[in-house]
Design a protein around this nucleic acid. Structure first.
Length: 366
DNA sequence: AAAGCGGGGGG
DNA sequence: CCCCCAGCTTT
């Protein structure tokens, strides 16, 4: 019989015992997390979006602040995107905020303000994929569907000694099939949370804490002493180095000239200081003048070097040279006035910025 | 299937 | 330096 078929059969046969021991362990060892105290589908949805590729400890303060600022789905839907991005500031992956906002409006318009309870309608909402759909359905609506995140993939790879690369689509489908066999009809939400909690607390990347594991007797990885080598990762992409310039342009009143980034691109919708990437062989001064000319239609002169910052992003590493400067000609507020403005030191932190701009403001004591 | 998309924690 | 993190969307 096919190896994966055997594993699926094994999953089906052992599912009951696994769920029982895992849930028992979970009740005794689970962390107290803010989103575990609510039954509000909106709050659960919000937590799952925030937790995408983001560690629990980093999410907690943002989650509390966000719910305080937008207590209900309706509050979120009727607020401007700018305020949602401000609440998302410093969390990264800002498309999550844009999608959350867009989805909230769609839910109000098409679903009477309530999150839909079927997978197809959920996954049709922007920002909700297979994992988040499963998490909402099981945790908010009690449906017996899996929620397969990075933790669950790692746990199941070890539990069933899956040694094919996780980057492979077929492996991912197989893991999901295993999870479907395991998720119980009773308490599917806590079961999914428990599987993730096991991955976060014991079955961690690298060397897992097998002696404490409630599923050790079921674990084929432990039995074969290959748990430390699983899961098998795919190949990783190298991050290129990039260089950019930013110009701090102030008017006679001391206000800062800031520009809003395009809505759907890198750090989309957030504000920045004018400037951009250096082309090969270009000096910072030339790049600043050219990018301001090309993107804003303004002519600037570049004065003093203020600072140089390094910022790491998911797919490249940026060195950002920050210079002061002045606007020579070209009315900065026309024609695209909606995407550029003068911000006073008292007002500037009301606009959403990414991490690197916040570091510049900090360094300038603004 | 691969790339684009942030920021932070930990080894 | 590396890895990983309660992933999704676009190409």
């Amino acid at each position: 019989m096919d190896k994966r078929t055997t594993s699926l059969k094994r999953a089906e046969q052992t599912a009951g015992g696994i769920a029982e021991r895992l849930l028992s362990w979970y009740e005794r060892n689970k962390r107290r997390l803010p989103w575990r105290n609510t039954a509000d589908p909106y709050a659960i949805w919000l937590s799952e979006i925030m937790l995408q590729q983001t560690q629990v400890e980093a999410v907690i303060p943002h989650y509390r602040r966000f719910l305080e600022r937008f207590p209900t789905l309706e509050d979120l839907a009727r607020s401007p995107l700018e305020e949602v991005l401000k609440a998302w500031e410093n969390m990264g992956y800002y498309s999550r905020a844009r999608n959350l906002h867009a989805a909230s409006r769609r839910i109000v318009d098409l679903h009477a303000g309530r999150l839909p309870e079927n997978p197809d309608e959920l996954k049709a909402l922007p920002g909700i994929g297979p994992y988040t759909s499963g998490a909402i359905l099981s945790m908010a609506f009690g449906k017996a569907v899996p929620a397969v995140d990075g933790n669950v993939k790692r746990v199941l790879c070890r539990l069933f000694a899956v040694d094919s690369p996780l980057s492979d689509g077929a492996t991912q489908r197989f893991i999901t099939a295993l999870a479907e066999k395991l998720v119980p009809a009773e308490r599917p939400g806590p079961f999914n949370s428990a599987l993730m909690e096991l991955g976060a607390l014991l079955c961690r990347p690298g060397i897992p804490q097998c002696p404490d594991c409630p599923l050790r007797s079921n674990c084929l990885g432990y039995a074969g002493n290959c748990q430390n080598r699983l899961p098998v990762a795919g190949k990783k992409a190298k991050r290129p180095d990039k260089e950019a310039g930013a110009a701090i342009l102030r008017d006679s009143k001391g206000r800062f000239f800031i520009v809003r980034r395009p809505a759907d691109g890198f750090l989309g919708g957030l504000w920045k200081f004018p400037g951009g990437m250096l082309h090969p062989g270009e000096t910072v001064t030339d790049a600043l003048k050219s990018r301001c000319r090309e993107e804003l239609g303004i002519s600037i002169s570049v004065k003093d070097h203020l600072m140089t910052l390094q910022q790491f992003y998911s797919h490249f590493r940026l060195t950002l040279h920050v210079f002061s400067g002045t606007i020579q000609e070209g009315g900065p507020l026309s024609p695209a006035a909606g995407n550029r403005l003068w911000a006073s030191p008292a007002d500037i932190r009301k606009y959403p910025f990414s991490r690197v701009e916040l570091r510049i403001l900090d360094a300038l004591f603004i």
